[in-house]
Every structure is written in structure tokens, then in C-alpha cells.
Amino acid sequence: MTLAAPEAGKGAAAAPPPARDPMSPTPWRVCRAFRETDDTFTLELIPEPGREVRPFAAGQFNMLYLPGIGEVPISISGDPAYPHTLVHTTRAVGAVTKKMAAIRRGDSVGVRGPFGTAWPVESSEGSDVVFVAGGIGLAPLRPALTQLLSRRERYGRVVLLYGARTPEDILFRKTLREWRADFDLEIHVTVDRATRDWRGNVGVVTSLIPRVPFEPGHTVAMICGPEVMIRYTVMELERRGVGPDRIHVSLERNMKCAVGFCGHCQLGPHFVCKDGPVFPYEKVAALLNQREV
């Protein structure tokens, strides 16, 4: 861990400028709400007529607010080229997200954002790119893949390694099928626990890393998932020779304000809300290996 001031911009795409009143949500309307898996769901939001729509970058998140219930940080999983529709996919695990799972088309949701740093999609042009997603971690990576695939010719080999708990937990099946069919993108999906009719890979996502083709010296890796998975993934990538300066991770911490005022999301010198959630791995490596920081 260094004492250098966190530079939010380094290694990450420039994020749009922050809102003038970062503390007050803007109402958006739910145009689609649907279940993805047993415990995950997607909300698609459109702005109220005449409302300002702010661009977002892949990797950024919004604070979604339900009046009287609470507010949660949720990464944006839609296409950055179409900021007029905000897509959020999340797990129903806490008081707020469980209520959110019951939201229907036409309901209103408060939105603050977008906040945080972005995946280095543009600065990775010319490189091989390996995406490693675990569980719901595919949601924050989807915008980066979407953006990259819209300019596929600018990249070398592109690989997505995706691990889920069981076959039932696999997110975005339709998107994965389309990507497989339409793009030069190698996708490997694996599950920790197979079910009877599962014909795909079994084993943790890290075990896929040794077998996929990429040029380690010219590879950028973007990782999103549980912190345990992130640490082991980095280890496997480093074993293949991918430098820590070319590995980017998205982290999660408690967030109340999303702009560095509330103090909750601190990780050493970093405010995960504004210096992250996407970090070059070398900036957080020591912190992730320390307990209860």
C-alpha cells in the first residue's frame, strides 16, 4: 500500500462529470422488470419526460432508491451507447433489493449517478482482453463487453470466462448465446456444482485460465466477482504472466453516498465509490490480502 494520492483516472476510461446535486435522486420509470435467475432480476429504466439523461461508462454504478425503504449501489449492466435506458441486474439479498425484486413496469425508482471509475475498454485497444466474471459479477462487465464488441476489430483475442454456482445461476443466457453466435469472442462458462442435465464445464472459474489462448504479455484482464475469486483469478493470471498493472478489478464496499462524503466505502486510502469501483489491481493488491481493512 502506498501513500500516493489515488488517481481515479489512471488506467481507467474517463468517467462523465458528476452531477450538481449528487445527493438527490431523479425519478426514472420502470419499463421492464424481469427475473433472471432464482435470486437475480433486471430492471430497465427510462427517464421521465424532459429529464436530463447523463452518459455513463462501462463499470460505473448508480444508487437506486425506493422511497422509505432505502438505497443501494448497483452497477449498470446495459449498453453505454444507449444511456436513455438504464439496465440494472442485481441479486435480491437485502431489505432494499428484495423490495426491488417486486417492482413492476410503470413503477418509479429514484436514481443517483452514474458514479465511480470505468473499465479500461478504450485503453485496451490493441491488446488481447480476458474478462473473468463470477456470479452476479457478469453484470458490471457486460457493458464493457458490449462496448468492446462494437469495435471488435480493434482488439486481439477476446475471452470471457464466466463461473456460476450452478447451471441455474447462469446470468444473461440470451446475451451469451448472441455473443457466441455473432462475434469473434471465446466464451467459457463453468459451474461449481453441476446438475444432472448440465453438459458444460464443471469447476471453479480460475481453473479455466490455464487452458484459454491469449498472449500474456499483451493481455488486459478485467475481473468482477466475489473478492475470493478475484484473488485466485489474479494468481492464475500472474502464473500465466499477465502483469498486475494490466489486471483490473471491480470491488464492493458499503456505500451510502457514492461521492466520498459518508466514509463507509474506504479501503485503505481509497474511497471505493469514487476512486473505484474499478481499480488497477496493483493499487489494491496489498489491501485485498489484508484482513478486515
Binding site: 432508491y65 422511497p67 422509505g68 425503504i69 432505502g70 438505497e71 451510502k256 453516498c257 462524503f261 459518508c262 466514509g263 463507509h264
Partner: peptide
Amino acid sequence: FCTTVEDISDLTGSTAERWRRWDSC
């Protein structure tokens, strides 16, 4: 400077407020 937020609403749920309160690490 750390704070948390508290969301409250009336019984009908039609009016809600968000309060910011001092918090401690």
C-alpha cells in the same frame, strides 16, 4: 465526517424522507 442515511416514510408510504446522520466507523 462519516454519516449514514435513514429512510423513513409515513404509514401510507406516499411520503418518505431521507435523513443523514452522523455515523461512526
